[in-house]
Each structure stands twice: as C-alpha cells, then as structure tokens.
Design a protein around this nucleic acid. Sequence first.
DNA 1: CAGTGTGAATATCTTCACAGCA
DNA 2: TGCTGTGAAGATATTCACACTG
Lengths: 212, 212
Amino acid sequence: MKSEHIPKATIERLAVYLQILGNLGRDGVNIISSDKLAQACKVNPSQIRKDLAYFGEFGVRGVGYYIQELITAIKQSLGIDRHWYCALVGVGNLGRALLRHNEFARRGFIIRGAFDCDQDKIGKVESGLEVICSKRLKTKVRDLGLEIGIITTPPERAQRAADYLVESGIKGIINFAPARIAVPEPIPVEYVDYFHQFYALAFHITLSQHRA
Amino acid sequence: MKSEHIPKATIERLAVYLQILGNLGRDGVNIISSDKLAQACKVNPSQIRKDLAYFGEFGVRGVGYYIQELITAIKQSLGIDRHWYCALVGVGNLGRALLRHNEFARRGFIIRGAFDCDQDKIGKVESGLEVICSKRLKTKVRDLGLEIGIITTPPERAQRAADYLVESGIKGIINFAPARIAVPEPIPVEYVDYFHQFYALAFHITLSQHRA
DNA sequence: CAGTGTGAATATCTTCACAGCA
DNA sequence: TGCTGTGAAGATATTCACACTG
C-alpha cells in the first residue's frame, strides 16, 4: 500500500499499539496476531492491518507479527526511532513539572533549553537547566539543535511564545497552554489539554445517567 | 436536531470552542458568529453550527451567538455545569503533581481522595489529603460521593487500580497510566497520554522533511 | 490452514447550499 | 440583510470478505 495521506486517527492508534506491544514485550510475548492485538486495544482487527499497511508489510501470513520487529517498524513509521531536542517556553508550575518529569528523556524527547520572559526566573536553574530569556531562542535553537517547542506559558502569552519559536526556526510545536495559536502553514502544532478528556468523561457519565 | 449519537470528534471540538469562547469573553467580546469562531479554531463554520445543533439552538439568526450564553449552553451539554468529586489512585510523581495542580478544582474536578497500595505512602499527607489504602476505596467512594477515578499508577498496576475503582462503584475513569485497562461495558474510560501528541508531531515533522 | 494484506462495501463525518428567521 | 439551522451531497474512515502466502 504505502499510501500518501494517513488519517490522524491512524497515528493515534499507532501510539496505542506501541504502548500495548511494549507492555506485551516486557511480559515475554514474542508474536501476536492482529485479532489478539485488536482485542487488547478494542479496535477492529482489519483496522490494525490497514493502519500498518499505510507504512509497509510487517506481518507474516499465517503467523502474525513479531512484536519486537513491529515495535521497531512503528517507531520508524512515526519518526521516533531517534532523539528529538526540545525547547520549553514558560517555566511556571506546569513547565517545572515537565522539566522534572524524566519520562521525556526516556521516550527520546530531550528538553535541552528552558525559556521564560520573566526577569525573576531568568538565570535560575531548573532540573539542571539555566532558564534563558525567550528573546534568545533563535541563537539557542540553532546552537543546541532544538527542533520541537513546548509551550507551557499562561494562555495570554502562548501566542507570543509561538511567535518566538517560529521566528527561531523551530520545526514543530506542542502547546500545553489553554489557548489556540496561529503559526505559518508548514509548522505542525499539537495541543495538549487533558481537561478535554475530563469533559468527555463527564459527558459520557451524564449521558448514561440521563438514559437510566 | 437534538440527535442521539454524538460523534466523539464533536465532543473534542466543544472543549476547544469552550476554551476559545472563554478567552474571548475575558477579552470583553460579547457576540460571535460561527464564521469568526471557525476562524479562531480553524474548522469549518458549518461544523460549529452542526456540533451545536446536536444539543439545541443557541444562536440568533442574523446576529450570531451570545458568548456567555453559549459558554453556559456548552457546559450544560457536556455536563460540566457542576462539580465532580474524584478519587486519585497512585500517589507517585505524576499523582503528586496532579494533586498539587489546583487547576483541577478551578475547572470543577475536585480530588477528594488520594489512594495507594504502598504501605510507606499510606497515612502521609499530600496537598491536604491523607493517602488511603486502595482497598478502602469502596467505603470512601460512598462516603465522599466520588464519581470519577483518576489512575496514576505505573502501567503494571493500572488494571488492579481499575478493578478497585469499578468494584467501588465509580462512574467513570481517567487513565494516565500507559496501559490499556478492561472494565465492564457501561463504565466510560478516557486515556491521557501526552506522548501521543509528541509522536504525532514527530511524525508530521518527519513527513514534511521527507517530502522536502 | 491460519492470519495477513487489500479492494469493495458500508458506515460515519464533514462540507455545501440554501431555506427560514431575527 | 446577515447569519443560523439543517437536509442533501460529498469526502473520509471503518469494516467486510476473500484472495494470497508462509
């Protein structure tokens, strides 16, 4: 297959497959069929086969998928078979929590620069990183090889942070601030707000109670 | 319209609309058209009108939507025009970070119980909450009126946490642990893993570089 | 012969286009 | 006149069903 346009939903599911495969691999499982994997992540088996087919042929007919190979293949497909250096902008509560969270490095997203525009914060050290003035992003992005920007400012400062990042030549942005940002077309932006999931849950609970 | 089945994507967008409307409201804007709102969140204007139509008629023809009214209407539609009491299971790094994060209470999700199965943690106080043995969930869920369970355990303990929560009569679960969990049909589960967004971003960046 | 890979069929979501109302 | 609300059309995504292969 190796098609051009890949559904957003496929990417999300690949991340889920990866998670499950990782846990299975740790449990010592070596091979899995699309049916079994489908059960584990509650999707349709053909969905899995189709999702994988966008990137290549990773299975063995009559057998299934070798877990370690499949993990490698998915990581390659997503582009996470390598390190990504990140710039974090906004050293508030959330920013500090993320800086301390060593899961980032473990998953290959290495925060190498912490930025803020607050004079009181600049120069202080957080998790081994000196907080640098946001206006110096451009130099640092170049010198440290930063590719991903992580915005953790308050909402009203998110756009400015995005502007600095874009200007500095960043390749993509993850925005944790509860505000939409505008960036030039080619730069991808992903939004993180786990309250969305809380809202969805509240909605589903309310709905089922309404029916009852 | 007031239809029965509502697309998952619609719920996600409602959360986005809410975010933008909130920011606009704070900026003193009173009325907005679906076109203007659509620009702000980069979706199709009909999409917004259709999303809202699932829940009722909130606009004024020839005028647009009164922002405060619309916010109220969306909150009601999602079931977040009230408080939700939550149980947090797993007082590790992530659990502690969430307990300290007062944004939860501000958005109406009040963590009233912190649970763990580690004897060393039980009895300690975190952000004003005494950590309680997970086995005592049932009593506490009843006594404190907890409705939502938040799982912040390591992946290998997520299923057990889910089992305790289900057994205790919880109405819905948010799972921050990087593992899928199985629960009986009627109980809704939402997964939170912001690395999914990092993966999606890495994918998009890699894709665009590959094209270049 | 079990289980993948995939074209065809179905289901779902999004966008269009315009009727209808303030 | 301007913008909502919505049926119909179009675009996308999911599932089916089976040919194909190790």
